[in-house]
Amino acid sequence: MAEETPIPATVDAYEQARGEELDGRWAFAVSWRLLMKEVDARLVDEGLREALELVRETGESPEELFGSPGVYAAELFEKWRSEGRLNPAAVKVPAARSLIASSLKASGWIAFIMFVLELVGGRDLQVGIFALPLVLGFATIGGVAFWEWASRAWATALVVSAMTAATVGIAATTVVVLEATSGTSLGALTPWLLLLEAAVLWSAGTVVLILVTAKTFGEVQDDPDDEQWVRRFSGVLRGAAWQSDARVREIVREARSHAAESGRTLAEEFGPPDSYAMTYGVDVRRRTTLKIAFYAVLVALNLVPMVDGFSWATTAVALFFTWQAWKEYRTYDRSRSRAQVAS
C-alpha cells in the first residue's frame, strides 16, 4: 500500500527547474487534486513530467503555460478519461458522495453565518448550538435531493406530507438537543469555535467534492445535449476559471450562435465542455480581486468586536487574514510581471 511513487521527486524538480518555490507548489497542488480523484500515482507523475519538460524548455511558469492547478488537473483527468487510462475507481464515485459534499459545504456556510451573527449579537449560546449547522446543512441538501427524486415518483401531496413530517421531526430533535445542553455555555469561545467548525465542515465538503468531480466528468462528457453542455461549461468557467457571469453569458451566447449556424450540437462543435472551458484560462485578476475582498470582509468582521475593547486573539486573526490577502496580491503581481516580461 505504501508503495513509493516518484511524485515528490518530480515536485522537487519543478522547484529546481526555474528556482521558483511556487512552481513546486503548483505541481504539488495538481498531484493532490488528481490523487484525491483516485488517479494512479504513476499516471499523475507522467502528467507532471510532461508539463515539466515544457516548463524547462520555455522557462515560463507552469501556471502561465497550463493554467491553475485545478484547471490543469481537470484537463489531465479528462484526457486520460477519454483515452480510457483511468482506473474504474477514479471514474465511478457513488452519487451519495455528492450529497455529502454539498451538505458539508452548506453546513460550513451555516456555521460561518452563525459565527458572524454571534460576533455581532454577542449572545451566550449552549454547546448544542454546534449541532445546528450540521442538522440544517444536511436537512436542506437532503430535502432538495429528496424532492428531486420523490417528485418524479410520488404524488405531490405525498411528497409534501413526507417533507413536512421530516421538518417537524428535525425541528423537534433540535429543540430536545438544545434543551438538553442548556446551561453548558462556552462563553467567549463560542464564536471562534463556530468559525473553526465552519472551516472544518467546508474543507471536508471540498475534499469530498473533489472526489465527486470524477463522477460529474464521467456523467457529462459522453454525449451531453446542448443544455447539459452549457450547464457544465458555464460551471467550469465560473468555478475553476473564475470568469465573471457577464463574460460567461457572452461566451455561451457566441457558442450557441456558432452551433446554430453550423447545424451541429455544442458538443460536436466545441468538444467536451471542460476541455473547451479550459482554453479560456483563469481570470487571474478577478480571482485575486474576489479573494482579497473576501479576506477584507473577514478582517472587518474581526475588527468589529474591538469596539468593545482590545483583544490579542482578534488582532492575530485579523493580521492572519491581512497576510493572506497580501499573499494573494503578491502572487498576482508576480504573474503579471512575468506576463509583461514575456510580451
Binding site: I251, E254, H258, A259, E268, E269, F270, S275, T279, Y280
Partner: peptide, 11 residues
C-alpha cells in the same frame, strides 16, 4: 475548423 479550435484563437 470547429468552434472549439477557432474561438480560443479569436479570444
Amino acid at each position: 475548423l470547429k468552434g472549439g479550435s477557432l474561438y480560443p484563437v479569436l479570444n
